[in-house]
């Protein structure tokens, strides 16, 4: 009985050894959707993000309204974490971005300033 169990024990131990070794080295990391949001801290490669959506059904009305109020260049694109974002890229500096956000808030939007995805 013991001799029969030994090969299975070898398999079980080897199956557990690798994950345990990985876990001992700081654990397994699972990326979060928030990791695709890079809050703007410095000038260059900035965009104003009006919102993130799981489908175009949610994103399209926001895009339409942004274009209607005159935010030309706003578009829908993947954010790299499985979501669609409605964003206006091409903002050169933090100062310009903050001015834009203030303007957008006056017409009912609440965008965030982010660095465009690397």
């Amino acid at each position: 009985m013991r001799a029969r169990a030994l090969p299975w024990a070898i398999l079980l131990i080897s199956a557990l050894a690798y994950p345990l070794a990985v876990a001992a080295d700081g654990g397994t990391r699972f990326p979060d959707r928030a990791e695709c949001r890079h809050a703007a801290k410095t000038d260059g490669n900035l965009e104003a993000v009006f919102g993130r959506f799981s489908s175009t059904t949610g994103a399209a009305p926001v895009l339409r309204r942004a274009l209607e109020v005159g935010f030309k260049g706003t578009r829908i694109e993947w954010d790299g974490c499985g979501l669609l974002k409605v964003a206006l890229p091409g903002i050169p500096t933090l100062r310009v971005g903050q001015d834009f956000i203030a303007e957008a808030r006056r017409v009912g939007f609440n965008p965030h300033l982010e660095h465009t995805s690397p």
Partner: peptide
Amino acid sequence: RLSGTAALFGALLIV
């Protein structure tokens, strides 16, 4: 049935 040889090679394949 699992032989010792199969278990050793199987362990390598699992890792």
